[in-house]
Structures are given as C-alpha cells and as structure tokens.
C-alpha cells in the first residue's frame, strides 16, 4: 500500500484537496458538515463517481468516452418507459439496460480497436446518434415516473448510510481489484502506456480496449437508471452535465489523459472535489457561472501540479541529488 501511494502522489494530493475543501466549506457555511448535508453531498458525488467509473478505465487505456451523456440519458428514459412505475418490471429492465449499455460500449470499443477510429470521434458520433434515436423514439414526450425500488437505491438509507454510498463503495472495491490486483489491470495500464508495446507483448489489446468501453457503457447506463430515482423522472438532456464532470473527476484524480496512469481511488477524490465545490459556492453566494469558472480553474491547477515543469523551474532551489555515474542513455 505504501508503494502504491508513493507511486500515486497525485491521488494523495486529490484527497488532501478534499479535506481542505471540506474545512473551507465548513468555515463559510457551518451547516455544511451536518450529517444530512454530508449525506446529500455523498449522494451527489456518488452519481459523478459511478459515471466516472467507466471513464476511468477508458482513460487509463488511452481512450476517452464522449458517448456517456446519451447512454445515460437513454438508459434513464427507457427504464421509466419499460418499468412504468412498477418494481416487478425491473427484474428484466435493469439487466437489459445494463446489457444495452455494454453493447453500445462494444460498438465504441470495436470502432476504436478494430477499425482504428480515434476515440473522440467514435464516441462523439455514437453520442449524437443515440441522442437522435432516443428523440425520435420518445418524440420528446415526458415519461412515466420511477419505480419505488430505484428511488430507494438512489435516495434511500440503510441506517445512517445512503444506499447509493454503499453501491459506490462496492464499485470502488471492484475497481481496485481490477486495476491493482488482476491481470486485466496490468494489461490495461500496458495498453494505455503504449499500444504497440502491449501488442508485441502478447496483450490482447483489442479485447482489453473493448472491455473498457463496455464497462463505461454499463456504468453510464447504471448511473442513468439510478438518476431517475434521484430526480423522480427521466428527462431529455439529463446526462449532458456528466460528460464534463466524468472527465474532470478522472483528471483531478491524477490520471493522465494520455493513458497508462491513474486509479479509480483518485477519481473518487475527483468526484468529491467537484461535488463539494458545487455545495460551497451557494454558501459563498456565487452563481452558476462562478462555479464553472472555479471548475475550470481547479482542473487547470490539478493538471499543472503533475507537470514536470515545476521541477525544472525549481531545480536550482533543491539540494543536488545523490550523484550516480554513467547511467544516462547516451
């Protein structure tokens, strides 16, 4: 674990950021640290965290998934339509929608891995196509309300703990096992670091790529399903905000957008940072516009922290490192 942290300084920094933000928020708005408020912050952060789950895997693998908004939105709309407010229908509706999300992910992954389409374009096109199709299908009309079970999953509690918080913890464990403890994780980091080296090393690169997009499609669909429980209905455009936040959470969590580094534990911190900021700004009497400005600034600051430029700028201020001879290349 120590070694993990040593190699992932950025994740630690992200958590430090969470703590600082909590303290600052508490200072300006004393009610913020009340159990009820913390709970609602956790619920909101969990949605970001669940959407960013798949995005984390895709970005570590060197890709990006821009199809998340409308996968999420489609899942939400279709869920309410399929279930018609009945819990019983969820037995088949939820698995079907998760499989559907995975299928869309498969399409994305196949386009990227097999046909060599740049991920930005592939997932962008899929996003637009899904948007159009669901609009055509629903005709833009409102949909029936959400089944009670979904509401329980999204806003219910077990004792003092929100159910969705438990879902999030479970996902965190799954992600950690996959990334740090499994052969798949090694393959994924290798793929993100260099697709050619991975290919030459016998890593199933196409399969690994496709799996990451399938995971992303599935978690986007899951988030869509749960979001209907939070808002009570599904509506058009409900996923749009999550494109930005999913990428931002991963970036703030210390992953390189080029792939090969990062961890879901970092993304968790990223999701918390973004959500706490959303809670902090009303306390400071700041508008939505100001929130966007702060979001942008936070991203710039966090990604610059990882920059090697600081090292170069300050190298003269540091004591010279232990000398080692003849180990440079050329």
């Amino acid at each position: 674990m120590n070694r993990f942290l040593a190699r992932n300084r950025l994740i630690l920094l992200a958590y430090a950021g969470v703590v600082v933000l909590l303290l600052v928020t508490a200072l300006f708005s004393p009610g913020f640290l009340s159990p009820a408020n913390l709970r609602s912050t956790l619920v909101l952060a969990a949605f970001v965290g669940i959407v960013a789950f798949g995005q984390t895997f895709v970005i570590i693998g060197g890709g990006i998934d821009l199809s998340i908004p409308w996968v999420l939105n489609c899942a939400a709309l279709l869920l309410t339509m399929m279930a018609g407010g009945q819990d019983l229908a969820l037995i088949w509706a939820i698995p079907l929608l998760l499989a559907g999300g995975a299928a869309i992910g498969f399409l994305n992954g196949a386009g990227v891995a097999i046909f060599g389409v740049p991920p930005i374009i592939m997932t962008l096109a899929v996003n637009v196509i899904l948007q159009g199709l669901i609009l055509v299908y629903t005709g833009g009309s409102p949909t029936p309300s959400t089944p009670a079970l979904i509401k329980f999953l999204a806003v219910g509690r077990v004792g003092p703990i929100p159910v969705i918080g438990l879902v999030w913890v479970a996902l965190g464990i799954v992600a950690t096992v996959l990334l740090s403890k499994s052969a798949f994780g090694r393959h994924l980091y290798a793929l993100g670091t260099s697709a050619t080296v991975a290919e030459f090393s016998g890593v199933p690169t196409a399969r690994t790529t496709i799996i990451t997009y399938m995971i992303s499609g599935m978690t986007a669909a899951l988030a869509g399903i749960l979001l209907t429980g939070y808002s009570g209905v599904a509506y058009l455009g409900m996923g749009d905000a999550y494109l930005f936040t999913s990428v931002a959470a991963v970036a703030i969590g210390g992953a390189s957008i080029l792939g090969g580094s990062g961890h879901y534990l970092g993304t968790v911190a990223g999701a918390l940072v973004l959500t706490i900021l959303t809670g902090l700004l009303p306390a400071l009497n700041l508008s939505n516009g100001a929130l966007l400005v702060v979001y942008g600034a936070v991203i710039l600051v966090t990604v610059s922290i990882s920059s090697e430029t600081w090292g170069v700028l300050f190298q003269h201020l540091r004591p010279p490192a232990r000398e080692k001879q003849g180990e440079t290349s050329g």
């Binding site: 090694r186 980091y189 290798a190 670091t193 260099s194 080296v197 991975a198 090393s201 890593v203 090969g260």
Partner: peptide, 14 residues
C-alpha cells in the same frame, strides 16, 4: 518496453 513502468511490470507483462 513500457518506459515509465517498473522493471518488474515490464518483465512479467507477457
């Protein structure tokens, strides 16, 4: 080689 990755990760990748 995966240059930023460790000796160990590189050795056992395949």
């Amino acid at each position: 080689l995966l240059l930023p990755k460790s000796v160990s990760e590189n050795l056992t990748l395949s």
